[in-house]
Design a protein around this nucleic acid. Structure first.
Length: 109
DNA sequence: TGAATGACTTCGG
DNA sequence: CCCGAAGCCATTC
């Protein structure tokens, strides 16, 4: 135990994502001051699997593509969760991603 | 300690 | 915008 910091930070930001909105790994990483560590955000998300409070399904890559859906329990679980929030997802890609995009930098600034 | 990994991002073509 | 390759940095073995 003891894994500090990064994961907790990402978890907090993920929890701050509003309903029906999504964001990218890079945006979170940048907000944490770890810009460039976008992969670590994904890694943190993997650890967030222990924290159901962390809506990892709201976190996608910069293209709005559900890259991490394979890491979810079900094959289409991630998409279902997004659609459940009113987000349109087609072929693992979020529609109107620009509109639904939630930038923690601007939102939390 | 060093090498490998990864739910990404950016650059060049 | 699509494709391929390199870079990034923290975690794990």
């Amino acid at each position: 135990m003891k894994e500090p910091s990064f994961f907790d930070r990402v978890h907090e930001v993920a929890k701050l994502i509003p309903y029906g909105r999504v964001t990218s790994y890079g945006a979170i990483a940048k907000y944490l001051g770890a810009a460039g560590s976008a992969r670590m955000v994904g890694w943190a998300m993997n650890a967030s699997g222990k924290d159901p409070d962390v809506p990892a399904h709201r976190v996608v890559n910069r293209k709005g593509l559900l890259t991490g859906k394979h890491h979810f329990a079900g094959t289409n679980l991630m998409q279902q969760l997004l659609e459940s929030e009113g987000i349109r997802v087609v072929d693992n890609q979020i529609q109107d991603f620009e509109t639904l995009f939630w930038d923690p930098m601007k939102a939390l600034s």
